[in-house]
C-alpha cells in the first residue's frame, strides 16, 4: 500500500491523537472510586491534587504521543521534512490536549457521566488548538514554510491559562 500524502498524514495523526487523549485521560478521574477520592480529600488540598493530575496526564500523554508518532512513521511512511521541529510540535500538542481533557474529565466525573460527555464538552473547546497545531505542523512538512514562533507562543500561553483555570476552578468541583 502507498503511504498517504503529507496533508492526509497530518490530519490523520492529529485525529488519532485526539482520540488517544480522550481515552487515556478519561481514566484518570472516571475510574477513581469514591473511597479513594475521600482519601485524597483528607490528605491534600484541591490545588495540589489537580496539579498532580495535570502533571501525571501530561507525562502519560507525552509518552503516548511519541509512541503514536513512532507507529505512524512505521506503518504509514515518514513524510516529515523537519523531524526535530515536528516532534517538538507533537509534544506541545499532546501536552495541550492532555491539560484540557484532564480538566474536562474532572467535570465529567463530578457530573457522574461517562467519557461520552467529556467528548461532547471537549470537542468545541479543543478545535481551535487543533486548527493551530495542524497549521503549524503543515509547515513542518513543507520545506519552504517556516513555523511561526508567535503561534507556538500562543499555544503555550493557552496551556498556561488552562493550568491557571484548573487551579482556580477545581476547588469548586472538589467539595461535595
Amino acid at each position: 500500500m502507498d503511504s498517504p500524502e503529507s496533508k492526509v498524514w497530518n490530519g490523520l495523526f492529529w485525529v488519532i491523537q485526539l482520540f488517544v487523549c480522550i481515552n487515556a485521560v478519561a481514566k484518570s478521574f472516571l475510574q477513581e472510586s469514591r473511597g479513594r477520592m475521600l482519601y485524597f480529600y483528607s490528605i491534600t488540598s484541591p490545588a495540589n491534587f489537580v496539579l498532580a493530575k495535570l502533571l501525571f496526564n501530561s507525562l502519560l500523554m507525552l509518552a503516548m504521543s511519541l509512541l503514536s508518532l513512532l507507529l505512524f512513521s512505521l506503518f504509514l511512511g515518514n513524510p516529515m521534512q523537519k523531524a526535530g521541529q515536528f516532534i517538538g510540535l507533537v509534544l506541545l500538542g499532546g501536552w495541550s490536549l492532555s491539560l484540557v481533557f484532564t480538566f474536562l474529565a474532572a467535570i465529567a466525573a463530578k457530573a457522574q457521566q461517562n467519557a461520552a460527555i467529556m467528548a461532547v464538552l471537549g470537542f468545541p473547546i479543543i478545535i481551535p488548538q487543533l486548527l493551530l497545531l495542524m497549521k503549524l505542523s503543515n509547515a513542518a512538512f513543507a520545506p519552504l514554510l517556516t513555523i511561526s514562533i508567535t503561534t507556538v507562543l500562543l499555544l503555550i500561553a493557552l496551556d498556561i491559562m488552562v493550568i491557571l483555570l484548573a487551579v482556580i476552578l477545581f476547588p469548586f468541583l472538589w467539595k461535595d
Partner: peptide, 24 residues
Amino acid sequence: RISSVYNIFAYTMLFPAIWILPRI
C-alpha cells in the same frame, strides 16, 4: 456548580476561537 465551572472554562477558551484564531 458544575455548569458554572464549565461556563467559565469554556468562555475563556472561546477567546482564541473567535478573536485570535480567525486573524491568523
